[in-house]
Amino acid sequence: MAYPTPLLQNDTLSHGTVECSDMVTTRRFLTEFLGLDIHRPVKEAQYMYKGGPWTVVCVRVDGGEAKDQTQDNLFKLSVNSAAEVDAAHEAALRHAEEYGIRKVEPPRDADGLRSFRLQDLNFTWWEISNVALSHYDALFDRGDVAH
Rank of each mutant, 00 (worst) to 15 (best):
G16T: 14
R114M: 04
H89C: 14
P4L: 11
V18A: 08
L7V: 15
Y136Q: 12
R27K: 11
T12H: 14
H89P: 05
E19V: 00
G112L: 11
T5E: 14
D141H: 09
N122Y: 00
L7M: 15
R60P: 00
K76N: 12
L113H: 15
G35F: 02
L77D: 02
V18N: 03
G100H: 02
W54P: 03
T12N: 11
Y49C: 00
M48H: 03
A110G: 11
R60C: 01
L30S: 05
L8Y: 09
V42C: 00
E65P: 01
I101N: 07
L93M: 12
E19A: 00
S129P: 02
A45L: 03
M1N: 15
L139T: 09
V42F: 01
N130H: 07
L139A: 12
G64M: 01
H95C: 12
H15D: 08
T70N: 08
P107D: 06
M23V: 08
Y99E: 06
E127S: 04
Y47M: 02
R27Y: 13
G16K: 06
D37H: 08
I128R: 00
A132T: 11
S81C: 03
T12G: 07
D68P: 01
D22N: 02
D120L: 03
A91F: 10
P4S: 10
V18E: 03
D144K: 13
R117T: 09
H15G: 04
H95P: 05
C20K: 00
K43V: 08
A87Y: 14
S81I: 02
Q71R: 15
R40G: 04
L77Q: 07
S134D: 13
Q9G: 11
Q69L: 10
V24Y: 06
S115Q: 10
F33I: 06
Y47P: 00
V61A: 01
F123E: 05
H39D: 08
A83R: 11
A96E: 07
C20P: 00
V104T: 07
G52H: 03
F116H: 06
D86G: 09
E65I: 02
F140M: 12
V79Y: 07
G16P: 04
A83P: 05
V57M: 06
L34D: 07
R60K: 11
S21M: 05
A82R: 06
A2C: 10
A88W: 12
D86E: 13
H95R: 12
R94D: 15
V18I: 10
Y136C: 06
S115P: 10
D68Q: 07
H39V: 09
I128V: 10
G51M: 05
E84H: 08
D137T: 15
H95S: 13
V104N: 05
L34V: 06
T55P: 01
E97R: 04
D68N: 07
V24E: 13
K43Q: 11
Y47T: 00
W125M: 03
C20T: 08
P41F: 05
R40N: 08
T31S: 10
P106L: 10
N10R: 15
Q119P: 03
Y47S: 00
G63P: 04
V61T: 03
E65Q: 04
Q69H: 12
Q46V: 04
H135R: 13
N122W: 01
A138E: 15
